[in-house]
Amino acid sequence: MFFEVVPPFLAALLFLTQLFFVARLLAQADVIFGSGVRLVDVGRILLFVLPSMLSYGMPIAFLLGILIGLGRLGDDREITALAATGHGPQALLATPLLLGAVLTAVMLAITTYVEPKGMLNARLLTSEMIKRNLAGNVKPGVFYEDLSDLTLFAGEVDQKTGALRSVLVEDARDPKQPILVLAPAGRLDARGPGGALTLELEGGELHRAQPRTDDYAMASFERARVAVVAGDEISRKNKMKRPGEHLTPPELLADADYWTARGKDVRDRYVEYHRRFAHPFVMLALSVVGVAVSGSASGRRKGGRAKAFAWTLGSVVAYFVLGKVFATLGSRGTLPAAIAAWAPVLLIAAMGVLLLEWKRRRGEAA
């Protein structure tokens, strides 16, 4: 049975991973296809978000693998022969449960460590790509206004080196004392601290208006470095910022305790903490569901596979909908965080057990 279940599971997992990655690409298309992004950056993003895709794709692929694998046994009349010997659907549970246990252990490693570390790296890399895009989007002869309260103009731009010529910068962060900077040469560097870029200017002049007078101050400089804060722009474009997704369970708990002590409602963090441990066990629950409904997914024609897809879609959608509903209840304090996290898994497992018992009583094979 192992070789009947594993190949369709791996094929489905590969397909779902590709599908989820395309969805990620489309969600961040304005960043990933920006002027400052290299092909290696796309590969690194794929590597960093892969654990997150696996945590969602593995349950779907596993259930589909069980249904297709056991459906093939049904097509070969092996399940019918097993039923003729007096064995019910429970006799088929051993291999799916063993695979489910192995995948649960893999999922625990993913959700508790690999996924949050990957999402942290993905968030940092995405911010760096956004900064490089901002630096690379400066066009010659065009006023560039995507840098917080700064307006940048360059008469010439070297697209290879990023060097600027005939630079004008208007700083309106203090409306009462706007600053105008003129420089013959400069460069906008994406390697600034945190959410900032660095604007380097050479041999320029600074003009500053004086409040309540018509005078202004002027100063010249040989070299100047200005930190250009672009945090708002980075935050707006970076879609990888779901609260807590980059924190490991101990970090989540510490973060939740920290904000709770300061009066902030962060019950959603506690729910997420428990979900990291509960979600992997859905593999065991789905192994029971898969065996319970596998008899409905057999058939030599396309109808058998169609039923397998229908059962997979229905079960997984039910699980994720329940997860969303119970997470909301936990975040509102209606349910304890642990119950809100474990309830969807336990309900899916209960559904599988009830279906198995129903089939046993009817004397049907799985």
Rank of each mutant, 00 (worst) to 15 (best):
V42I: 09
G43K: 08
I45H: 14
I45T: 08
L47T: 03
F48Q: 05
V49D: 02
S55M: 11
Y56K: 13
G57R: 05
A61M: 02
A61R: 03
F62W: 01
L63W: 08
G65S: 04
I68A: 12
G69F: 07
L70E: 03
R72I: 03
L73Q: 01
D76N: 11
R77E: 13
I79A: 06
A81Q: 06
L82N: 03
A84R: 03
A84F: 07
T85M: 09
H87K: 14
G88T: 01
L92Q: 03
L93H: 08
A94L: 09
T95N: 12
T95H: 12
P96N: 01
L97C: 02
L97S: 00
L98N: 10
V102N: 14
L103V: 01
A105L: 06
A109R: 09
I110Q: 07
Y113H: 13
V114K: 10
V114E: 07
G118V: 00
M119D: 06
N121F: 14
L124G: 14
L125S: 04
L125I: 01
S127I: 03
S127G: 11
M129T: 06
K131F: 10
R132I: 01
R132M: 08
A135T: 04
N137M: 12
K139S: 07
P140E: 02
P140C: 01
G141K: 00
V142A: 14
E145L: 08
L150I: 03
F153N: 01
